[in-house]
Nucleic acid binder design. Structure first.
Lengths: 229, 229
DNA sequence: CGCTAATTTGACCTTAGTCAAATTCTGTGG
DNA sequence: CCACAGAATTTGACTAAGGTCAAATTAGCG
């Protein structure tokens, strides 16, 4: 299911604390030790957890991609984040001791390792690296969201689309961006029709190339320029 | 500067970890112990810290009110949060070990207790209540910001204004809301002129009463209804 | 191959931003 | 206490961005 090769290469571990968790999982796999966890494969479109449900543990993405979203009053989704292999989702609400305020859904077939709340929390108690890493992570995400809010408030949809595509280039990492128009619109925070018109503009300006769902970015520079700052 | 009365009454302590800090400060005041800290009074408009500066510690608001904001590309502020007495600001960026991504400015004359980074971090190391409280706090704020983002993306300015006024009723706690039109607009995320027009609407609908800068909410129910959800 | 869901286009209209000008406040010095 | 300069607020006129609704087209799947 997971092996040293994947751990070191395919998973894009960005921080010490994530490495600590994956290290645990990996050693369990190999040596069968104490941290209970289980791998589950979610089909595209399957929910990991829903808004208002009770957090029971942490979802570590081994393979695949997961969108984190919130539904507005009229049911329209606002995508807050797209998590890829190596990332962990579902633990933020776990700390609040309240129900989830966001939902999580697999964007493609995803293999995910689940660690129960108790296990995760006790690991945190005994592991200062993990603990401090998580505090750092949460704080960084707060800064990112301040940015997100400011962008929403002050930038045009065109600017936000450019910004979003830059984020997605990173999420999809070399692959073409491959999302439904609706998800794309819900990440940018606009109507699907508006998104489509702007994609067309980008296409006509030669910034991107489109093959049905797949979007290839041809001119990253221009996106940076349009996104501003 | 601070006494038992203020601690128990005037400061609105909302969580265990904040109580732990204020308890420390208070006991220092009384018994002159080890946690170094100093009280400073900031005039209205004074900066506690600026975007891009290096975090050096935590600011505990003893009296007053502080806006946390981010500047967009054209220099326009987006207010992310308004902190009141009892709250602590400036520690989130401290954890990231990066420069501040937001600025903080006193909205009125404010008395603030500063605790240096080292002192605060070592207190955290030895105090699990504080540590866990902070993790919980950061997680809750992440959820709030997901909300904020969704509101920005999906609600009209009118709806956001109603929502913002509800938040401000809590911040100003019984007092009339007293902010410049510009700050109000920058919190709602709109142009000052638009904000003014909408305030006028609210006034004409009998939802609020206005005395120059002071806004009195007459019909909280209607605000809830307009804000939606 | 056919059916459903997703995408795209067109027409229209509302919301909210911009710019300029008028008015009102506020703090300061006389 | 009053006058006044500079800010802040308010109003008006105009414009543009982007949302909505309906219809047409295309893609994807069984």
């Amino acid at each position: 299911m997971i092996d040293k090769f994947r751990f070191d290469n395919a998973l894009q571990i960005r921080s010490e604390w994530q490495r600590a968790i994956w290290g645990q999982i990996l050693s369990e796999q190999l040596q069968n030790q104490e941290l209970k966890h289980s791998f589950i494969t979610y089909k595209k479109g399957a929910q990991l957890f829903q808004e208002a449900s009770i957090p029971r543990g942490v979802y570590c993405i081994n393979q695949g991609m997961v969108k984190i979203f919130k539904r507005g009053d009229e049911g329209k989704e606002q995508i807050i984040h797209i998590a890829k292999a190596g990332e962990m989702v579902g633990f933020r609400a776990m700390f609040t001791e309240e129900p989830y305020k966001v939902g999580a859904e697999a964007l493609e077939e995803s293999n995910i390792c689940f660690i129960g709340k108790e296990d995760f929390l006790s690991l945190m108690d005994t592991n200062p690296v993990l603990r401090n890493g998580i505090i750092k992570e949460l704080s960084k995400e707060l800064a990112d969201r301040a940015d997100f809010i400011t962008n929403m408030a002050q930038k045009s949809v065109r600017e936000r689309l450019a910004f979003t595509m830059l984020i997605l280039m990173d999420v999809f990492d070399k692959q073409p961006i491959n999302l439904s128009r609706e998800d794309l619109a819900n990440f940018v925070g606009t109507a699907t029709e508006t998104l489509i018109r702007l994609l067309k503009d980008f296409k006509e300006e030669g910034i991107i190339e489109v093959q049905t769902r797949k979007i290839f970015v041809l001119q990253r520079e221009r996106l940076l320029q349009i996104a501003g700052k």
